[in-house]
């Protein structure tokens, strides 16, 4: 170790102060939402709540847990995340492995690689996307949420590069011991790629959890909305320039900030819990995939 110069020390202090402020700036909105969700309704409307609940109550949480549509949407999202993540992960691994081979081993590698990359470069746009899904007949079902995005090409490329970074000798030794490609993939590559897989897993889970637009467009009934679509429909601000008295009354009924805050918080909670466990792989995973060798 070397002695810190005054300049270095000043930098460290400034650095820590800056980063602390930055992380506080990230945490405060969440704490604010949490405080509102536990506050009495009148205190929340009057804007009295900052970082500590005013007039503590768990009423909003009771209200939500009694609301069948919140629970139902929550269930659909869980189903979507489980199903969608499983499909995404399996397909990503199965596609990345052959594409990580050289053209000598896998003749049409380049053709296939371009076939996938093409979808990143050019997409059909909203209407063709909708029509394609409509004509497959999966509209209004859970499959419409998981199948159209079944192959996340960006993740395939990430994993493909990671596979390439692993020493070939490992695979060769497996072949010598009598393993085929299938065995090499599941026994050598997948166990060695855990950091990278964890990263992709996190991307996928968060992606499915947050996606709301496809739910809005592809579901024909609000009963089938996933959670983020449901939240989007209740949280988006109504344009207040021209409201009738009826709409106004309705707005007064739904503009219950405490209930909304509680729903936001419950909606974010599962991801908040998953994040720390996967996050430690996060940085490592991407870096390892890119700088090996």
């Amino acid at each position: 170790m070397y002695a810190y110069t005054a300049g270095r020390r000043a930098f460290e202090y400034a650095n820590y102060a800056f980063l602390t402020l930055l992380s506080l700036a990230c945490i405060f909105p969440l704490v604010h939402v949490l405080a509102i969700s536990f506050s009495s309704s009148s205190a929340a409307t009057a804007g009295l709540v900052t970082f500590w609940p005013v007039g503590f109550t768990t009423k909003s949480y009771q209200y939500i847990l009694d609301d069948p549509s919140f629970i139902r949407s929550f269930g659909i999202t869980l189903e979507r995340v489980a199903l969608g993540t499983a499909i995404n992960m399996v397909l990503t691994v199965l596609i990345a492995y052959p594409l990580s081979k050289e053209a000598r081993q896998f003749k049409f590698r380049t053709v296939y690689a371009w076939y996938f990359v093409f979808t990143i470069l050019l997409s059909g746009g909203l209407i063709p996307w909708y029509m394609t899904i409509k004509s497959t007949g999966i509209m209004d079902s859970i499959w419409a949420l998981v199948l159209p995005g079944a192959v996340p090409v960006f993740n395939v490329i990430l994993l493909l590069n990671f596979f390439r970074g692993l020493p070939k000798e490992l695979e060769e030794s497996a072949f010598i011991d009598g393993s085929g490609y299938w065995g090499a993939l599941w026994r050598i590559y997948v166990p060695l790629s855990m950091p990278s897989l964890a990263t992709i897993l996190l991307f996928t889970i968060v992606g499915h959890w947050n996606a709301w637009f496809d739910g809005l467009i592809l579901m024909n009934s609000p009963a089938n909305y996933p959670l983020s679509t449901y939240l989007q429909t209740i949280l988006t601000k109504i344009n207040m320039s021209s409201l009738s008295t009826d709409q106004m009354k309705a707005l007064a009924a739904v503009s219950d900030r405490t209930a909304k805050a509680a729903q936001i918080f419950l909606g974010a909670l599962p991801i908040l819990i998953v994040y720390p466990f996967l996050q430690r792989f996060f940085v490592k995973g991407i870096v390892m995939g890119s700088v090996k060798e």
Binding site: L126, I127, Y130, M131, K134, D140, L216, I217, N220, S221, P222, Y225, Q232, T233, I234, T236, K237, I238, N239
Partner: peptide, 21 residues
């Protein structure tokens, strides 16, 4: 035929897609 719950803007988006298709 279908239902959109939410704001008028969100409904209009879906209607646009439906008209186009």
């Amino acid at each position: 035929a279908w239902v959109v719950k939410g704001t008028g803007d969100q409904y209009d988006q879906k209607m646009n897609v439906v008209i186009a298709s």
